[in-house]
Design a protein around this nucleic acid. Structure first.
Lengths: 167, 167
DNA sequence: TCCAAACCATAGGAAGTCCAAGTATATTGT
DNA sequence: ACAATATACTTGGACTTCCTATGGTTTGGA
């Protein structure tokens, strides 16, 4: 928890980059560093909001995904692809969600390798409340103007697409 | 390591948000999720580039900061503020940097509480090479057009300022 | 058919982040 | 001068992420 700094340290780093002759890379460096810092800020805010619900953002995302699934269940495989995290990360999250009774692992009817994830009743309740809080306290009030959010999303979509993040 | 998806899962989530009546929050949600995902992509790329140097991005940032300090040394306190990470995160990074001989902790001449960080000769060498690789393989070639990088940095600076990230 | 290759999930381990607490040192106010 | 407060750093714990390796299951080619 850094106290407010006299000047943007990323802007300072950018100046240093330029001063040392890497002007061509300075803007890219600054943008990447700023993205990482911003992600950290949002993650902390989201986790703080979700803490009273006994959730983290990673686990919230799992619940939210399951809440949208038509059939009410999703193979772990599929879920980890949609959440774009490593399979082992999802295993970790699901372990905790299952331990607190928000989610169940059930066997796949035809494929013995696959496990399906299913929300419990309690899981649905927690999801409902957590999502409401997150919408009110974070998404409705992110601190970013709508226009900026849209521009950001467009730029990042272009970038992610260029990186093979999706087809 | 997710394989390429048929469609952007964040755009899908955004659609779901709208379909469920949270259209007002959808763009913000999508932007925030995209930021987190993009940060993850960049972090993985940076860590992969730095691995041959025996570094991670977190530790590289410490070295880079020290490399810029006029006096050649910096109090941990000051460093953690500039890097905008918790003091304990810096302790963690410095432990590893010191264990591999890239950095030294030396006592502060007048304040007994403070420890100064100092690059070793090997630390300077590693920094030089790592920074060159990062500039060539990540920053020069980030996959983001210069104009996008600049726009991104501006939007994120506005946001971070609004969040009290700096004055 | 049946063996090899692909796939799903999990275990273990390394690293990063944060927070809460604890220790030591400085500073401040009475 | 001395007690209270503030600051600097570290320790321990919770959590996430990734990677590598392993055990089962399924699938596909000889």
């Amino acid at each position: 928890m850094p106290s407010p700094l006299p000047r943007d340290p990323i802007a300072q780093a950018r100046d240093q980059w330029i001063a040392h002759g890497w002007g061509a890379e300075a803007d890219s460096m600054a943008a990447i560093t700023a993205i990482m810092r911003t992600a950290s800020i949002f993650l902390q805010r989201a986790d703080a909001i979700l803490k009273p619900h006994g959730l983290t953002f990673a686990r919230f995302e799992v619940l939210a995904l399951l809440g949208f699934s038509k059939r009410g269940s999703l193979p772990m495989n599929h879920a980890s692809q949609l959440l774009q995290v490593h399979a082992t990360s999802l295993t970790n999250s699901v372990d905790r969600l299952e331990a607190t009774g928000l989610v169940r692992r059930i066997p796949h009817p035809t494929d013995g390798r696959t496990r399906l994830l299913e929300l419990s009743g309690e899981g649905k309740r927690v999801l409902f409340n957590a999502r409401q809080d997150l919408n009110e306290q974070l998404f409705s009030n992110s601190g970013m103007p709508e226009a900026d959010a849209r521009t950001l999303f467009q730029i990042l979509s272009r970038f992610r697409h260029s990186q093979g993040d999706f087809l």
